[in-house]
Amino acid sequence: MDRVPPGQILTERFPILTYGEEPEVSPEEWRFTLRGLVQEPLTLTYEALLALPQVDLTRDFHCVTRWSRLDVAWRGVRVRDLLEQARPRPEAVAARVESYGGYTTNLLLEDLLKEDVLLAHTLFGQPLPRERGGPVRLVVPHLYAWKSAKWVRTIELLDHLELGFWERMGYHWRGDPWREERFQEGPIPAASLRFRKRYIKT
């Protein structure tokens, strides 16, 4: 199977694209919160994140600006494991992700529940550098890279789809590279989304 989605160009480089200033957050200052429509909200420090079961993951990375980098090696914690702790409520179908610096993006809960979605703190065996979203970023390898929010601080579960920064600017509400979902051309799903898959117990 071809690993490069349609419209993408393979590169050995790993470009850095950031809108606005890069926030400066030390590992000691970093906090992550999983909240919203969950039964057990949780907050993690960097130290607590490192104490959780870790996953080494190598996946391809696809940017909406049409470059793809193969075999990017991450280490971190599965978001699915955190969701199992937090126990999403039955009405939760989507999430609003917020970063230090104010960047936001939206995701479906079923996308967050995929096994290769991480809170990543390590890239190619080294602590994640600031310009790559360190100390911790979200990695959602099956969607375009703008969904993999750098400097992640909050995931809030919702009963509706709330568009993030680039989505409000016209980017696609989901961003599947294999379907070339770069820009929104059709209707956005209504607030009554109810197609959640039951991956975890609630």
Rank of each mutant, 00 (worst) to 15 (best):
V152P: 12
R182S: 06
S26E: 05
G164H: 12
E162C: 04
E24M: 13
A51W: 00
E167D: 04
T122I: 03
V139I: 12
W74H: 07
K150R: 15
H142V: 09
Y171D: 11
G36V: 07
R130M: 14
E29Y: 00
H160F: 09
R196T: 08
Y144F: 15
E24I: 13
R69F: 02
G125M: 09
P23W: 07
G133F: 01
P23D: 02
G36P: 06
V136A: 05
G20N: 05
R3T: 09
T104M: 09
A73D: 06
V97N: 02
L112T: 01
E167K: 07
G170Y: 03
H62I: 02
T104R: 13
L34A: 06
T43L: 01
P90H: 02
R80A: 14
L112A: 07
V97Q: 01
W151D: 08
E29L: 07
R168I: 01
A190D: 15
H121Q: 11
R96F: 07
V117R: 07
H62Y: 15
L109F: 03
F124L: 00
T122P: 00
D176I: 07
E40D: 12
E12H: 13
T33K: 10
V55A: 01
L42M: 12
W30T: 06
R69S: 14
R168Y: 04
R153H: 10
L49G: 03
P15K: 08
K201M: 08
P5T: 08
L83Q: 00
A95M: 09
G76L: 10
P53A: 11
